[in-house]
Amino acid sequence: MLTDFVRSNASEPHRIRTRQILKSHPELKKLIGQKNPNTIWVILACVSLMTGMAWLVRDQSWWVIIAAAWFIGAFPAHTLFVCIHEAAHNLIFRKPTANMWAAIFANLPTILPTALSFKNFHIKHHAFQGVHELDADLPDWYEAKLINNYAIGKALWLLFFPIFQAIRTLRMYELAVIDKWVLANILVQLVFDTLIVVLFGWKALAFMLLCLFFSVGLHPLGARWIQEHYLTLDPEQETYSYYGGLNSVNLNVGFHNEHHDFPSIPWNRLPEIKKSAPEYYDTLKFHTSYVRLFFRFLFDQEISLYSRIVRKERGRVTVADQSKPDLELVQSQAIPTGSVA
């Protein structure tokens, strides 16, 4: 049972593997920088579905609203989060401005204005994976100690995951998080939320908020956060993919090793990476069931929030490098070597 995070002296593994894969499979270079504008149709469909559901449940009993959010609404809400993730990497449209507006629109049914703040922090997660003061995906030390390794603590952590995630950003004092796009996100969201209350009522707004919390928290979909970087299958493998049926509705978000290796390749092309370079991915451990992982995380006391790799080494990546394509990064950065402590 871990009582602290796993310390590593190694650089994060993805730029190293990207270099190796591109050397063995140069044909993958043509996928880097591609866009998938069809993602906007997914956004439109999910926003319409969630808004329509909010109208349908506006006068229902609370148990109906909660059930509708958990069994149905969580899925389009999660898909919209994946679309926001795609926009954060500028993988929908060629112009960054268009991607930011797409993210703001995808954010609407999930009530809290998080899309542009997510972009600012998530790009740093790729550049500084495991560096505690720059990677908002890592739990805080107080968070891991508070939750411990018991089922009730982990269930509460999942239930309130968006709150814990927001608090983590307070430690990112090196990063500027308020800009005109974050303010635009807040303003547009406030207008939308007000319209929902005026036209549909408070229960409709509560339904949308519940969809957000369930889509990333106390729900099998919440197991995605455990799948991605928690040491669940191998104490030295830092990132895991999920190859299961929910990739079809979650826009291949389970292909997480592939995404970290090639963050400038859109979601519809991620399976091609694994197919083109099986010798690099078939040797890695992976998950096939969010339901199984969800219950294992809750009840396996050997898995806790400490089950993460942290590092002090930032390598030669700088905050300015966040916008460089994968190919440019691996060609320009010297990759230090090391081992897991």
Score class of each variant (00 low, 15 high):
2 L>R: 15
3 T>G: 13
4 D>W: 03
4 D>T: 11
11 S>N: 13
11 S>R: 12
20 Q>D: 11
21 I>P: 04
21 I>E: 05
24 S>Y: 12
26 P>F: 09
31 L>P: 03
31 L>C: 04
32 I>S: 06
34 Q>C: 12
35 K>W: 09
36 N>M: 06
42 V>I: 13
43 I>S: 01
44 L>S: 09
46 C>K: 14
47 V>K: 01
55 W>N: 01
57 V>R: 06
58 R>V: 05
60 Q>G: 07
62 W>S: 03
62 W>K: 01
63 W>H: 14
65 I>N: 00
69 A>D: 01
74 A>W: 05
81 F>P: 00
85 H>F: 00
86 E>Y: 00
87 A>Y: 01
88 A>W: 08
90 N>V: 02
91 L>V: 01
94 R>I: 08
94 R>T: 11
101 W>F: 15
105 F>D: 09
106 A>F: 02
106 A>G: 04
107 N>S: 02
112 L>I: 15
115 A>E: 04
116 L>F: 06
118 F>Y: 14
126 H>F: 07
126 H>R: 04
129 Q>A: 15
140 D>C: 09
141 W>Y: 14
148 N>D: 13
149 N>R: 15
152 I>N: 05
157 W>M: 11
164 F>A: 12
165 Q>L: 08
167 I>E: 08
170 L>I: 13
173 Y>Q: 14
176 A>E: 15
184 A>T: 07
186 I>H: 14
189 Q>G: 01
190 L>C: 12
191 V>D: 00
195 L>E: 06
196 I>S: 08
198 V>S: 12
201 G>T: 03
203 K>T: 06
203 K>R: 14
206 A>S: 13
207 F>S: 00
208 M>L: 15
212 L>I: 00
213 F>A: 05
214 F>R: 09
215 S>N: 06
217 G>V: 04
227 Q>A: 04
229 H>K: 11
232 T>V: 11
235 P>D: 10
237 Q>M: 13
238 E>F: 12
239 T>F: 14
243 Y>A: 09
244 G>L: 01
248 S>P: 00
254 G>E: 05
255 F>D: 07
255 F>R: 05
256 H>L: 07
262 F>L: 08
263 P>L: 10
266 P>K: 02
270 L>Y: 05
270 L>W: 10
273 I>K: 04
273 I>H: 03
280 Y>D: 02
282 D>E: 15
282 D>G: 08
287 H>G: 00
287 H>V: 00
288 T>N: 09
290 Y>L: 08
295 F>C: 00
296 R>W: 06
299 F>A: 01
301 Q>I: 04
305 L>I: 09
305 L>Y: 07
306 Y>K: 11
308 R>V: 10
308 R>C: 11
312 K>T: 13
312 K>F: 03
313 E>T: 14
316 R>S: 08
316 R>E: 11
318 T>H: 06
318 T>L: 07
322 Q>A: 13
323 S>I: 08
324 K>N: 12
325 P>S: 10
325 P>G: 03
326 D>Q: 12
327 L>H: 11
327 L>W: 07
331 Q>K: 14
331 Q>S: 04
335 I>C: 06
337 T>V: 10
340 V>W: 10
341 A>H: 15
